[in-house]
């Protein structure tokens, strides 16, 4: 009886008696949800355009943030460093295309997936070799990002909204909008969708596969850089971020591997449910259930919709 009470009644009583806490938890969930969505977006971009499940997205986030901090510490002004970082992401995209993707064209998906894990290992080693393994502080103020917080008194309590979180949410929204326009309205975007649909058909109408791949990896790199800045500003820049990036995987399967709106909705569902379950139901199980709860939420959704919420329905034929 007591267990049932703890599961079904106690948390809701807590929610109603302390609405300020509830709102704070929901806000936390919303913010981490947008950040998961950003990482998931990077995955989706590459998966859509090349069918590659890019495991290296997480390390690209770390790599982008680290090169930004590293360049700044060398005395490069913040905005110049940002521009240089974008250039680095482009070089990374071109290198990956030339040395990993191009030789592996037409291989099975699992081989390409493994290649990106190999790439992850390479980038971990390379990043630690160049920048060192210790955590670094993100140059938040130098980039002109707000650092304060709004304290709102409401519902008999204090709700703290970090300004960096608000800007993270705004930037995520802007990025999604920009990508949506890019995919739907531009010439390159249309070519990307064509490649996503069918490689060979796209090539036969004169779309250069190599170019398209560089563009998607570059776009994913920029998304990674933005994620790295935002996430770095919330904690600090370290290789641990790469593990956090794994949290984007349940977001992906929840939203569907090929859907940009799916990444956003999935991110929000995972972020909110994760924080709610952790805060209200976590103590009962001994805490830190954040590490696996998102996967179970995603699994429950998948049980009913095996291609995710927005994934393309796969028609299988023998």
């Amino acid at each position: 009886m007591e267990i049932l009470f703890n599961i079904f009644i106690q948390p809701f009583i807590e929610m109603f008696t302390a609405p300020d806490l509830l709102i704070q938890v929901l806000w936390e969930g919303f913010v981490s949800g947008t950040l998961y969505a950003l990482i998931a977006l990077g995955f989706v971009l590459i998966f859509k355009a090349s069918g590659v499940f890019n495991f290296a997205q997480g390390i690209m986030v770390v790599f982008g943030a680290l090169s930004l901090v590293g360049l700044y510490s060398l005395g490069v002004p913040a905005y110049v460093a940002l521009a240089l970082c974008i250039l680095i992401m482009f070089l990374l995209a071109a290198t990956v295309e030339r040395f990993v993707m191009r030789p592996l064209v037409n291989q099975e998906p699992i081989i390409l997936f493994m290649a990106t894990i190999g790439l992850t290992f390479f980038l971990i080693g390379f990043g630690e070799f160049v920048f060192g393994g210790e955590p670094k502080l993100m140059i938040t103020e130098e980039l002109g990002l707000p650092t304060g917080s709004y304290d709102i008194e409401a519902f008999g309590g204090l709700i703290i909204l970090q300004q960096i979180d608000i800007s993270a949410a705004l930037i995520a929204g802007a990025m999604v909008a920009a990508l949506a326009v890019f995919f739907n309205k531009t010439r390159i975007g249309r070519a990307l969708r064509a490649v996503a649909d069918d490689h060979q058909a796209a090539m036969s109408v004169g779309i250069t596969l190599q170019q398209i791949w560089v563009i998607v990896w570059f776009a994913a790199g920029i998304v990674a850089l933005a994620t790295g800045i935002m996430w770095g500003a919330r904690s600090d820049v370290s290789f641990a971020l790469q593990i956090i990036a794994l949290k984007a995987l349940p977001v992906l399967i929840l939203g569907g591997l090929t859907s940009i709106p799916g990444a956003i909705v999935g991110g929000l569902i995972i972020g909110l449910s994760e924080k709610m379950l952790e805060f209200y139901w976590g103590p009962m199980l001994g805490g830190s259930i954040e590490s696996w709860v998102p996967y179970f939420v995603a699994l429950i959704f998948l049980w009913f919709m095996p291609q995710g919420l927005f994934g393309e329905r796969i028609i299988e034929r023998v």
Binding site: L104, M114, A115, G118, L119, G125, E128, F129
Partner: peptide
């Protein structure tokens, strides 16, 4: 050495796959 061995393992995996 640790970092370099990470890099080499990663690169070798890609190399082998290719």
């Amino acid at each position: 050495v640790e970092h370099i061995s990470f890099m080499i393992v990663g690169a070798l995996i890609i190399f082998f796959l290719i």
